[in-house]
Simulated scan of single mutants.
Amino acid sequence: MQLVDIIDEAWGWSGLKPDSIVGDNPFGNLIVKDKEGRYRRLCPEDLYCRMIAGSRAELDMLSRDRDFLHDWNMSELVRQAREKLGPLRPGFKYCLKIPGALGGEYGGENLATMTLEGLVSASGSIARQIDQLPNGASISLVVT
């Protein structure tokens, strides 16, 4: 299965109709172009998929924004992950064992690696399950 198909299956519930992937980072964040030519950021560690640009011109402008680039590059977290886990194997990305959106630590013992496909699929599933919960709601995370 192609990654675009996995994104559609895992994140389609959010309204995303993926067309192509135009960027990725070492933590599996993706910039996804949708079928309408808009761009979304899929962020597995924070369990969201949000519109970041309505056109290629807006995306190009965003790619020069220091704050966006600092957040996108995740330099300090990537450095910690590389030191703790070593370089990434092909097809793998760094990740948080417990997503930050669920209170997971951004570093330390909460760092791991996972296939990009698995990360996209798992984060989409968790995000869908908690989408309608109010902030601060109690949850039980069951790993199978």
Rank of each mutant, 00 (worst) to 15 (best):
V4W: 01
D5T: 09
I6D: 13
I7R: 08
D8Y: 03
E9N: 10
A10F: 05
W11N: 04
W11C: 04
G12V: 11
G12P: 10
G12D: 13
W13N: 09
W13R: 07
S14P: 11
G15L: 09
L16V: 13
L16T: 12
K17P: 02
S20H: 09
S20C: 10
V22C: 15
G23C: 01
D24K: 09
N25T: 10
L30G: 03
I31M: 06
V32N: 10
K33A: 10
E36K: 09
G37N: 11
R40C: 03
L42Q: 10
L47K: 07
Y48P: 02
Y48V: 08
M51W: 06
I52Y: 04
G54R: 14
S55W: 13
R56H: 12
E58N: 07
D60W: 01
M61T: 09
L62N: 08
L62F: 05
S63Q: 13
R64F: 01
R64L: 03
D65Y: 00
D67L: 04
L69C: 01
H70Y: 05
D71P: 00
D71I: 02
W72P: 08
W72Q: 11
S75R: 14
E76Q: 12
V78R: 03
R82S: 14
R82A: 13
E83W: 02
L85V: 13
L85P: 14
P87K: 15
R89V: 04
P90T: 13
K93S: 05
K93V: 14
Y94N: 10
Y94F: 11
C95K: 09
L96V: 07
L96Q: 12
I98W: 00
I98E: 12
I98Y: 01
L102C: 07
L102G: 06
G103W: 00
G104Q: 12
G104A: 09
G104S: 11
E105Y: 01
E105S: 02
Y106C: 03
G107P: 02
G108W: 06
G108K: 08
G108L: 12
E109T: 10
T115E: 15
V120F: 05
S121Q: 12
S121H: 08
S121Y: 06
R128I: 07
Q129N: 14
I130R: 01
D131T: 04
Q132V: 06
G136R: 03
G136I: 03
G136Q: 06
A137I: 04
A137V: 04
S138V: 05
S140N: 12
S140I: 12
T144L: 10
T144G: 10
T144D: 13
